[in-house]
Amino acid sequence: MTYTPPEQPDPTGGYQPAQPGYQPAQPGYQAAQPGYQPAGQQYGYAAPSTKRTLSLWGLILGISSILIPIWINAIAGGVLSGIGLAKEPAGKTMAIWGLVTSILGFIWAFIFWPLIITVIFAAAFQSQYGY
Score class of each variant (00 low, 15 high):
residue 71 W to C: 01
residue 15 Y to V: 15
residue 125 F to E: 13
residue 63 I to N: 01
residue 41 Q to S: 11
residue 5 P to H: 15
residue 128 Q to C: 09
residue 79 V to W: 01
residue 100 V to G: 14
residue 36 Y to P: 10
residue 16 Q to Y: 15
residue 12 T to V: 14
residue 5 P to A: 13
residue 97 W to E: 07
residue 10 D to N: 12
residue 29 Y to L: 13
residue 120 I to G: 00
residue 106 F to D: 03
residue 81 S to T: 02
residue 79 V to E: 00
residue 66 I to M: 07
residue 20 P to I: 15
residue 122 A to N: 11
residue 51 K to E: 07
residue 43 Y to C: 10
residue 74 A to G: 00
residue 15 Y to Q: 13
residue 18 A to D: 14
residue 41 Q to T: 12
residue 74 A to L: 01
residue 84 G to R: 03
residue 38 P to F: 06
residue 4 T to K: 15
residue 96 I to S: 12
residue 22 Y to T: 11
residue 119 V to N: 05
residue 100 V to K: 10
residue 115 L to S: 06
residue 37 Q to M: 10
residue 57 W to T: 07
residue 46 A to T: 05
residue 122 A to R: 04
residue 58 G to P: 05
residue 128 Q to N: 13
residue 119 V to P: 03
residue 131 Y to D: 09
residue 110 F to A: 00
residue 9 P to K: 05
residue 99 L to K: 00
residue 88 E to L: 04
residue 19 Q to A: 15
residue 77 G to C: 02
residue 96 I to F: 13
residue 98 G to H: 05
residue 121 F to E: 08
residue 71 W to H: 04
residue 81 S to G: 01
residue 70 I to G: 00
residue 11 P to A: 15
residue 55 S to G: 15
residue 119 V to Y: 00
residue 33 Q to F: 12
residue 96 I to T: 05
residue 99 L to N: 02
residue 83 I to W: 02
